[in-house]
Design a protein around this nucleic acid. Sequence first.
DNA 1: CTTGACCTTGGTGTGTACTCTAAGGTTTAT
DNA 2: ATAAACCTTAGAGTACACACCAAGGTCAAG
Lengths: 136, 136
Amino acid sequence: MKIGEFANQLGVSTDTLRYYEKHNLLTPLTRTEAGYRDYGEASLKQMKFILRAKNVGFSLLEIKELLQIKFKKHQHSCHEVKDLTIQKRDLVAERIAELTRFHQSLSVLADKCCGGQEPADNCSILTTLEDIDGLT
Amino acid sequence: MKIGEFANQLGVSTDTLRYYEKHNLLTPLTRTEAGYRDYGEASLKQMKFILRAKNVGFSLLEIKELLQIKFKKHQHSCHEVKDLTIQKRDLVAERIAELTRFHQSLSVLADKCCGGQEPADNCSILTTLEDIDGLT
DNA sequence: CTTGACCTTGGTGTGTACTCTAAGGTTTAT
DNA sequence: ATAAACCTTAGAGTACACACCAAGGTCAAG
Ligand SMILES: [Zn+2]
Ligand SMILES: [Zn+2]
Ligand SMILES: [Zn+2]
Ligand SMILES: [Zn+2]
C-alpha cells in the first residue's frame, strides 16, 4: 500500500507519516521499484498502536520509548511500562491542577464584572489585576 | 532604574523585559544618555499587572489586549473585558476536560499492570494499546 | 502521449515564551 | 588605567507536532 491510501485509511496526512518515519516511530518495511513507501499489515498495527497511545495522552517521544519496549518485550519489565504510565499520569495531574487554578481565578474575575456596555473605567476585572497582589 | 535592578525587583530576567518591550507589552518611558532603559513607577505597576494576568492564565497576546483596553478604558466596555475573561475560562475548561480524559485513561492502564520486575511480554498496558480500539 | 494524480527529497513556517550568543559600548570601583 | 559588572543590538535556538512548499520523478487512463 502506498502512502496516500495508507494515510487515508488511518485518517492522518502523508506529511504525518513521513514525519513519524523521520522520527523513528514508523518505517515501512519496503519500497517499490520507484522508491515509493510500501506499507503493510505490520505498519497498520503499529500506527494503530501509536494513535491509541496518542489518544491517552502520550507524546511522540514517550511513544517512541513504548515502541522500543514493545519491540523487545523480554528485555524490559512491566515495571518500566507502568512507570512511564504513572509518570505521565502524574504530569497530567499537575497540569490539570495548574489549569484548575487558572479556571478558578478566571471565574472569580468574571463573576465580579457586570459585563455591561458601559465604559470599562471601573471594570472590576481590570482594577483587580491592577490592585491586588497574590491572586492565587 | 536600570533594567538589571528592575528585573531583580520583579523576579524576571532582563531578557524577559526586552522581550516584552519588543512585543509591546512594556516600554520604559525614557532612556539614559548612554541609551540604557530607564524604568520608573509606572513601569513597575504595569509589570505587576502583566504578571498578575499571567498568573491567572492569560497569554501574552491576551494580556496585550487587556493592556490596550486598560490604556483607553473609556473607549471599551465591561462587556469586552468580561468576554475575554470568559472566553479564556472556557478554553481552559476545554483543556482541563481533555487532560482529564487522558488522566482517566492512564489511570485505567496503570491499574491493569502489575508493575513487577518480570519481562513485559504480557504487560497489560502494551497489550491494551495493541489490541483495543476506542479507548476513550 | 499527454494529463492528472500520485510519489520523492529537502527545506521552511507555525505558535509560545522565552533563553542564549556575539560583538561591542558604559559605568563604577580600585 | 583597567577590570568587573553592567548595558546595547540583532539574531539564533528551544520544545512539539506537524503543515506547507518547490522541483522533480512515476504511473494509470484516455
Ligand atoms: Zn461593569
Ligand atoms: Zn467589568
Ligand atoms: Zn506484569
Ligand atoms: Zn505490565
